[in-house]
Design a protein around this nucleic acid. Structure first.
Lengths: 187, 187
DNA sequence: CTCCGATTTTAACATATGTAAAAAGCTAAG
DNA sequence: CTTAGCTTTTTACATATGTTAAAATCGGAG
């Protein structure tokens, strides 16, 4: 499943709009370890992980922190840079050999102005992104790292076999040692 | 400043659209202690604090947690219920005698379909809301309660004289005792 | 298969933050 | 002015989580 299919589920587009949208989407095969975005670059694309795994990360106090994880069929973003046009302090790394689609955001904004139904799609997607961010805030504020780990495994079965522990730990806002304790059930 | 002025800064509207938008906004004077939204209600409005103070809060493990604070000239929301149409597990309380404006969301969606520029306004506002949520996530993940308190005082000078400490504490994700320690500078 | 490097787990310790409860400080009504 | 009730601060203690470092385990290259 690619961006077009994912967005059609949010807001069905006219044939003309869908065609125009398809023209600003690129697809690439990427190898483990490659980067979709480096620190300091302006992100001009909204990325989508068709098949594989990737992460958004940054440095904080000299530590590598995973901000976001995306597996098969998910958007790989949440990157402020794309909306603000400012250089990103986050980078995007591919964690497995993957298929990735990228939607050119400035072109998308042009299409928004041109087609009302694409503008609506944009509004709905931004709304969904906001709701997801709200849920994440609540999850951070009210659930322990142990609960969030359990939830992650539930939502993405087998994720801990695909993603190194250190990335899971920093994503969950804890340390590798604590996550190891959690897994051991010592609490 | 009301909703119309605040939104015109985000996306200037045609006269006709602005007029249509104005017709779905209500203004009310509310007293300290009153509620704009109760637990279990579906929130049909996007609220805006023209003058005064209010908070979004909920119960968690039997405790009253402030989720969001709004002072003069800010939106008073972030309430998922409005977007999903589901009953809210959050409530909205007025903390000082206030002037509040409320935009009827179902009507707003109707106007979005009718006027392309209102749809664009909706998209931009959702995008801003998402960016703000992202910033909040980073603030929670990477700054101590002490730093967040300092930042809050910086952003809203004098807020600690307007809002009871217990609300500030739960908003910052800490306890009244810890916040008291922070203020005393003991760390 | 064997070895080396990377990942994960375990251990020992330090520390920040929560809990509960008492003390101190404010504010408003009589 | 005095009291009552609420808010804020302080104290003492328990505990969860981070830090550092070492041990164990895993996985791929040769």
């Amino acid at each position: 499943m690619g961006i077009l299919e994912a967005t059609q589920a949010v807001e069905p587009l006219s044939l003309e709009s869908a065609k125009a949208l398809a023209q600003i989407i690129e697809r690439k095969s990427l190898k483990k370890g490659q980067h979709v975005l480096y620190f300091g670059e302006v992100d001009k694309y909204m990325h989508f992980m068709v098949q594989g795994a990737g992460r958004v990360y940054y440095e904080h106090d000299g530590k590598d922190i995973t901000d976001y994880l995306a597996l098969d069929g998910q958007f790989l973003g949440g990157v402020i840079s794309m909306f603000t046009g400012k250089p990103s302090h986050k980078a995007i790394e591919i964690l497995e050999d993957s298929e990735v689609e990228s939607l050119h955001y400035p072109s998308f904004e042009r299409l928004c102005a041109q087609y009302h139904d694409i503008e609506r799609l944009g509004r709905k997607m931004a709304t969904f992104a906001f709701l997801e961010a709200q849920e994440r805030i609540e999850s951070i504020r009210f659930h322990s790292a142990a609960e969030r780990y359990a939830f992650l495994e539930l939502k993405y079965p087998g994720i801990s076999n695909r993603i190194p522990l250190k990335h899971l730990a920093s994503y969950l806002g804890t340390t590798q040692v604590s996550l190891s304790r959690i897994r051991a059930g010592i609490q």
